[in-house]
Simulated assay, not measured.
Amino acid sequence: MARESFAIGNVRVRAGAARDVELPITRLVTGGDVSLPVRVVHGREPGPVVWVSGAIHGDEVIGVEVIRELIAALDPKKVRGTLVAVPVVNVLGFMAGDRYLPDRRDLNRSFPGSPRGSLASRIAHLFMAEVVAKCEVGIDVHTAADKRANLPQIRADLDDPRTRDLAEAFGARVMVHARLRDGSLRQAALEVGAKVLLYEAGEANRFDDESIATGVAGIRRVLAFLDMIEPEPADDLPARLESRSTAWVRARSTGILNLETKLGAFVEAGDRLGGLSDTFGRRVRLIHADRDGIVIGLTRAPIVNAGDALVHIASVTQ
């Protein structure tokens, strides 16, 4: 018996096929329509329904390339289950190269949304109704905020056994037990029963090979773990580190920053991470680690003010 077609928007995708779908969002003042672009890969054989999403923040472009490379290598005739791929969730922000929507709202603080609310709320509602409600697992791809960089990492509820299994299957170097944020996609999806991984890597408005390759390989490992695709030949994964506590080392003075550490570096409390100088090069203050751990994020800003976040350190267990 043939597998039932997959309904999304006003279309149905037959089993063993892939189809691009446009979910209407709004109309521009010029009269043009704005839609949410979705690729549905509906496998010939039954299996889980999984979504992958990128660019909830419009300047976080790495997810777009991760998803492009992922779906380019999938054959719907060989997939078991269904993959719903949404490379750009914040379409208007993405077109403008801006983290936020035109009304300056953060889409990832607007879930689960409302069909009659703000633009952000309407997009969130559309995504929940047409994507999340149809899926049991989601992988949401993010990058660091503007002028910051993140080490490839998974953030998830590691206390939930099923979510933890998925996080371990992804195979990122670090997995962080992350608290939920009000209005986030992850919180809203968990409330309706979906298991969610948040993949963080790289910088805003910039591609980098390591972040993209880690993301593509990790998602494919999760799909293989769910028996949706065949597993890759055994690869050498780094020892996975788990973190239950992370914190930023912050500037204690204003100055020009010279960092002496890098993403992925292991540090001990008291280690020198860099220094701040004035415009004549005179040293203002040294920067030291306040804990043992691994550097999972850092600023790229050369000029910092007192209180600015400089280096993000995760305390880890093997």
Rank of each mutant, 00 (worst) to 15 (best):
R162K: 14
A73K: 11
T143D: 07
V295G: 06
L126W: 05
V41M: 13
F6H: 05
D236F: 00
P112D: 11
S110V: 03
R105M: 12
F225N: 12
M228H: 00
L28I: 02
D182N: 09
V174R: 05
G54W: 02
R252T: 12
R283W: 03
R14N: 15
L151T: 03
P302D: 01
P233I: 02
G275F: 10
I62A: 15
H42N: 14
A55D: 04
C135V: 05
I219M: 12
I287P: 01
T82K: 07
D290E: 15
R12N: 13
S53L: 04
D159F: 11
R99H: 13
V91C: 09
D20V: 03
T317G: 11
Q153T: 08
A120P: 05
L197P: 03
R291V: 03
G202Y: 08
S243W: 07
G117H: 08
A247I: 03
A289W: 06
L259R: 00
P37E: 07
V91L: 11
V41P: 03
W51K: 04
P87Y: 07
A217D: 14
A224P: 01
L226P: 07
D235V: 15
S245K: 14
R162M: 14
D157F: 00
V196I: 15
G307H: 09
I123H: 04
V88W: 01
E260S: 12
R80K: 14
V34L: 09
A129L: 07
T279K: 02
S211L: 07
N108H: 01
D146H: 09
R68C: 04
F207M: 14
S110D: 05
L197N: 02
V86I: 13
A7Q: 13
H312F: 13
L185Y: 08
D98S: 14
A167Y: 02
V66Y: 02
R3C: 05
V52N: 05
S243V: 09
D209C: 07
R173L: 12
H57T: 06
D146T: 05
S118V: 11
I212N: 11
A188S: 12
D20P: 01
L198F: 04
G97Y: 07
D146M: 14
